[in-house]
Design a protein around this nucleic acid. Sequence first.
RNA 1: GCCCCCGUAGCUCAGUGGACAGAGCAGGAGCCUUCUAAGCUCUUGGGCGGGGGUUCGAAUCCCUCCGGGGGCGCCA
Length: 554
Amino acid sequence: MFPEAIRRAVADALRSVAAAAGLPGLDGLEFVVERPRDRRHGDWATNAALVASRPAGRPPREVAALILEHLPSIPHLERVEPAGPGFLNFTLGPSWYAAVLARAARGGAGHARSEAGAGERVQVEFVSSNPNGPLHIGHGRGGVVGDVLCRVLEYAGHPVEREYYYNDAGAQMGRFAASLEARCRQALGEEASVPEDGYHGAYLEAWGRELAAAQGEALRVLPAEDWGPEVLRWGLARAMRDIEETLELARIPFDSWFSEAELHRRGEVEEAIRRLEERGFLYRAEGALWFRSTDFGDEKDRVLITRDGRYTYLAPDIAYHLDKFGRGFDRLINIWGADHHGYVPRMKAAVAALGFDPGCLELIITQMVNLFRGGEPVRMSTRAGEFVTFRKVIEEVGADAARYYLVAVSPDTTLNFDLEEAKRQSMENPVYYLQYAYARVRSLEEFAAREGVERRPLEEADLTRLGHPAEIELLKQADRLGEEVAEAAARRAPHRIAAYAQDFATAFHKFYTDCRVVTDDAALTQARLWLVEAAKSVLAAVLGLLGLSAPDHM
RNA sequence: GCCCCCGUAGCUCAGUGGACAGAGCAGGAGCCUUCUAAGCUCUUGGGCGGGGGUUCGAAUCCCUCCGGGGGCGCCA
């Protein structure tokens, strides 16, 4: 990586300055090497002189001049100049961009993979919707954010496991089964009503009819009290099938599906409680069993076993995290919806109480999604179960657009998702802008082939023929890929990839408009064909990271 | 009342310590006999909700106030 070369050189220079000019306090100074926002400030810049100014007791510009004087030579560097209040601006020469081109063109979509993650094993748990109904758009956001984050982490050198945890036990499932049973009986012409605290969504009417059609005959002969387990089994499978199909449509794969019921069957919930007991964090009060989470900063203690002897949802959740920590990951990342943010302190408390480092558990909270259609809010009542499902959104706007819009903004920002806008196949849609760049690359390849122009080996290409501003800009943008992915991974900010992808597509479209690739100038044609190949690698990489299709034609 | 997220251009959003604050869309003016015009160029438009503070430097950090959203169950 280039910035490290600059960092080393500047650090060396600071040491030399300290020795030569007798200025103390310049060793081990913290300074940054970054890409300046403004192109006129070169390719890289450092604030070293600004930071060194105070300990050196000299004005920043003066320190900058001293650093410059003692700066060792850096390969590929064309020039360094002091600027502004005391920055040092570095500009790279053509040899660097030839190297960037060669790497991208030869290495394909994976050419910028890094070891930034240092092999740290990460497990990401996301979506984790309960199997009692379809996924809604909020789950979709968590799903896409989680999926892209996983792709980004892998690209940045982390082994990643993706897990879906589903609560197929507990009171909610009972309510779900009772509701489904009522809908099924109604479909069979019986008198029945959905319990007050049950699920009233329209989807359950449909599922009730399905169940009646599939199992009606078999159920009819059973005594009323025997329906429950059958209905639950069918309903659970039906819900899981819907969830899995939806995730598949959205291209969100999982490595592992973890069942809460399994946790109970294996006695892990009891085990977790025993462990907390041993460590002295449990007590009985008011007939219930409490976890003293306030010992770890939670605002109040939490019940694990209720007065009537049932586990609260927290008990299996703690057992689940105990299980995860036991699987040897270096880091656990949970992606939760905004409505769960209040559970962060107690979950962290539980992890700490179990004796693990709560810092190894990270919670990413995705804010709400508001759906619009042509600027008008789409009315959704969760209580009445009337909501636009994630599946319907994908079917309406397509997986590419749905994914893009859900991941393009920061997880911290409330997302306003307009179905009409996402569906529009026009220039106001950033998804197509990006894919169009890829389609243009493919079209260039086809055109060259039709013209009988063959790309010769890279060694034979004269890359010094590249020098048009649009060509240089394209290579500069290509050079950013590795850093951008590492940054997105480190900050858990998958939306940065969408932003970078747009920047790159812009550079490519500009190049396409300004520079004709296949011309009578054979040498220039060869150099540009290789540049196009490099661009193709970057586009394939970002489309892959975002989980978008890479169309040959549009 | 307490906790979390947000408040940046007409709209949707980037930017979370650095150099005159950016993009897309919308508005205005242009560019197709040449590899896909789902493209490109130029242009209008904000000083980052208000106030205080830290810093050589703040949209970015701290305090406070205002506005919007979400959460505060022995529900999950």
